[in-house]
Nucleic acid binder design. Structure first.
Length: 402
RNA sequence: GGUGGGGUAGCGAAGUGGCCAACCGCAGCAGACUGUAAAUCUGCCCUCUAUGAGUUCGAUGGUUCGAAUCCAUCCCCCACCA
């Protein structure tokens, strides 16, 4: 078993907030003395079952807790998912059916166990306790929090000041999350920095229920592919855990140079010293930034698909984009053996959503047939097996007459 | 319940009877340059059987030669007051 100092160093790496270091040390000491693992809580929203690298930041942290011998208590917010969380923007999320929530939860777990150790993970659904909760209990729970407290939360106060709507449901959400902590007797709760308020509220509510308050730790929010906003599904700037190796690699390569260090740290958990060494190598010209990013891409792919897949994705990428050759696996599109206009062909091949879009692509000079630029939108052709249509840098389709 | 302000393309935001498929910004797509990085420049950015046609400005109905713009009804959103 690791010593207290070793555990503390590993556990607190890369964190942003920690409330508090002393409490954590005390708890770890007690855990070691009593040989009793700590219970590390994290909650998940099952409305969006696609895990991406942003989620991995916290999952990595949980894994590090597990490596120190602790137990992860994962809470799937199926109850809250069925209500429909309107948080964030004004758009109210759709209410999910019970079946859908369960289906999402299943998929969620499959993905998260690519990082977490199932043997040291407890999974709970919060409908276990909220499903049976009566309204008087809800009211009593709300008595522990004041509106002023809730308004202290950054995004609430901003929205309130800007006369933007805040739904009462949103006010209730932090309470729901806090009560989860009570029910699972969490020792520590992890979340993104945007969760700080909710996590801290968990402490208050635990105290109100006679429990020792959980230790709260927040992790940085990983910026997405646009380099500005946090990685999220709704912004479409994400790399999904379930993306193909090719996509993971390609998307990683499109991350800006400045940002790639964050990925080394938060996705791969590379120690700060190693990152500093890499940075120095790039700064001195000893290594080309492209090669460092290639290494990042390979390792990210390897994390989810194995070393071999990483190497392969890297090689394929070099072939297609550096040497400008055709990819090895081009999706085939079956077309009847009759004359067809280039625009309709592209739509059929999935290279454009409409003929109007196809027309624009041709006019922009983005479309090639067997690597020869198509100049005329009215071009008609007899389909022939094996002809490759190319649209831009990423769109490929091979014709199959049938 | 009352008062006021709103609903325009993915988002933000102009437009208040014809010059509107609708200014502009962001996002996105493509081209050039590259390291599929960043930055920059250029073009595009509702659909179609496409130098033309069709369907759009919360919904429906109306006025008009002509409506995103005017009228009526309805639906939805927000703030403040209660």
């Amino acid at each position: 078993m690791m010593t207290l100092e070793q555990q503390f160093a590993k556990i607190t790496a890369r964190r942003v907030d920690l409330h508090s270091a002393d409490e954590l040390k005390n708890r770890l000491a007690k855990s070691i003395a009593e040989k009793k693992p700590l219970r590390i809580k994290m909650g998940a929203d099952p409305s969006a079952p696609d895990l991406h690298l942003g989620h991995c930041v916290a999952l990595n942290k949980l894994r590090e807790f597990q490596d120190c011998g602790h137990t992860v208590v994962f809470i799937i917010g199926d109850f809250t998912g069925m209500i429909g969380d309107p948080s964030g923007k004004s758009a109210t999320r759709p209410q999910l059916s019970k079946e859908k929530v369960l289906e999402n939860a299943k998929s969620y777990q499959d993905q998260m166990f690519k990082i977490l150790d199932p043997a040291r993970t407890e999974v709970h659904f919060n409908s276990e306790w909220f499903g049976a909760m009566t309204f008087d209990k809800v009211i009593r729970l709300s008595a522990h929090v004041t509106v002023a407290q809730l308004l202290a939360r950054d995004d609430f106060s901003k929205r309130y000041a800007a006369s933007q709507p805040i739904s009462l449901v949103e006010f209730l959400y932090p309470l729901v999350q806090a009560y989860d902590s009570v029910m699972v007797r969490a020792d520590v709760e992890i979340g993104g920095t945007d969760q700080l308020f909710n996590l801290l509220l968990g402490r208050e509510i635990q105290k109100a229920h006679g429990q020792e308050p959980q230790i709260v730790m927040t992790m940085p929010l990983l910026e997405g592919l646009d380099g500005v906003n946090k990685m999220s599904k709704s912004l479409g700037n994400y790399i999904a855990v379930n993306d193909t190796p090719k996509d993971v690699f390609g998307k990683t390569m499109s991350v800006s140079d400045d940002l790639m260090w964050r990925y080394f740290s938060l996705v791969l958990c590379l120690p700060d010293e190693e990152i500093a060494a890499l940075k120095a190598a790039v700064a001195s010209g000893a290594r080309h930034p492209r090669d460092v990013k290639d290494e990042l891409g390979r390792r990210v792919v390897a994390k989810f698909h194995g070393e071999a897949a990483g190497a392969e994705a890297s090689a394929e990428f070099a072939r297609v984009f550096s040497q400008n050759q055709l990819p090895t696996d081009i999706p085939e599109v079956v077309v009847p053996a009759e004359k067809i206009g280039i625009l309709n062909l592209m739509v059929k091949a999935g290279l454009a959503p409409s003929t109007s879009e196809a027309r624009r692509l041709v006019q922009a000079g983005a479309v090639k047939l067997d690597e020869e630029k198509v100049a005329d939108v009215r071009l008609e052709l007899e389909p022939k097996d094996g002809v490759v249509i190319r649209s831009g840098k990423r769109g490929f389709a091979k014709i199959k007459v049938g």
